[in-house]
Simulated assay, not measured.
Amino acid sequence: MTPALGIIEGFFGRPWSWAERADAVRFLRPHGYSFYLYAPKADPWLRRRWQEPHPPAEMDKLAEFRDICRSQNVRFGIGLTPFELHLHGGRGWQEALAAKLAQLASLKLDDLAILFDDMRGDVPELAERQAAIVHYAAERGVAGRILSCPSYYSDDPILDVAFGQRPAFYLEQLGRLLDPAVQLFWTGPEVGSREYSPGHLARVAGQMGRRPMLWDNYPVNDGARMSQHLHLRGVTGRPAAIGPHIAGHGVNPASQPLLSRIPLLTLAESYRTGESYDYLAAFGRAAREILGEELALRLTKDILTLQDRGLDRLGGRKAALQARYAAFDHPAAREICLWLEGYWTVGEDLVLTQ
């Protein structure tokens, strides 16, 4: 069973351009990717400055991209983060949220996600407050499907370190309070999970009261640590057997739109081929499709350096790699050169302000 596959543009740092988004939709749709959630952390009107209306020029771009998605039979959605709204109990928040939702309603969205990720969560009645916000958004009729990301979207204890200790039975309470039609994102055992198992997902579904919608943080490479690496290898730990246990599989891609396509194609192949999936062979096929024979061969030889060593540990190899990939007249090779120049490096200060 292949679940609905999609892109969740939800990373920190430099977002993709509108042309890159459009190209990704057109390329990935034939490979089974049928939804796109626009939620870059760098869009201030969806996160830090969510109470301000999107400027008209930005709304025009969103509408144009929506039309491109529709032309490809791809669901178009927006992820809104009403930043820290859940920290304030009582009333008084509805007016600002209603104004924002009214503007987004003009886009005639297929999907609206209300996101509570990557901000403080150790407050009283967290599940109750968040359920009220999600239901308020759902009642406005902005989109045909409503999704939400919990504050604690993984079992990973790093979330408790970064955003405060999660309330006891938070996931169970949120699942009980939310309308069953609302889908809930989940990144797995870890923020960047190495694998998903049917047993893990069945347990989470029991806590949520619904099958989780995966927010898969591979091949994303944002943040101070991950932006030092290119995530290129074929996916592992995502067996086709998890399909019946999830509502869909959304992928948070890397900052590099073309290079992201290599692991994205292997995920589709993993579901399609099931137990016969061979991640090394899948990587080779995907790399050749995206890069062509010569560049794919070169990348295969350098993958240990590009994915594992890290930009900050290349030393004298950096200049040699830059010269090597500058010799290729290919946009993916230019992505590697830009990465080597630090174009996509994300510092902790940026994560704290986006």
Rank of each mutant, 00 (worst) to 15 (best):
G250T: 10
F283Q: 15
L80P: 08
D329Y: 10
R140D: 10
D216R: 09
L340A: 03
V142D: 07
L5K: 04
G342Y: 04
P150L: 08
E20T: 06
R129E: 01
G77N: 11
P3D: 03
G237K: 04
Q207S: 13
W344L: 07
G89L: 15
R91G: 08
D60Q: 14
R324G: 04
D23L: 05
V134D: 00
S148I: 11
V220Y: 00
I303G: 02
D312G: 09
M59K: 12
K61V: 08
A131W: 00
T305C: 06
E348I: 15
H231S: 13
T2L: 15
G79R: 01
R14V: 11
D122F: 05
G248D: 02
E9A: 13
P253C: 09
A102P: 07
F116K: 03
A332W: 02
I290W: 01
F163I: 00
F83Q: 14
F283G: 13
A168H: 12
A205F: 02
P3G: 06
Y33E: 12
Q354I: 06
W344G: 04
F169V: 10
G209T: 02
F11M: 10
R211F: 05
A240Q: 09
T353A: 13
L171A: 08
A286F: 00
Q322V: 14
L232R: 00
M213W: 13
R225C: 10
M119W: 05
V251Q: 05
H245V: 12
A181N: 04
R47P: 02
F11G: 01
R285K: 12
D111H: 13
H249N: 10
P263Q: 14
A327Y: 08
F12Q: 03
G199M: 15
L109H: 04
L62S: 05
L115G: 07
F83H: 14
A326K: 15
A202T: 13
L214Q: 00
P3L: 12
A323C: 08
A296C: 01
I242S: 01
D155W: 07
E289S: 12
E293V: 09
E341C: 10
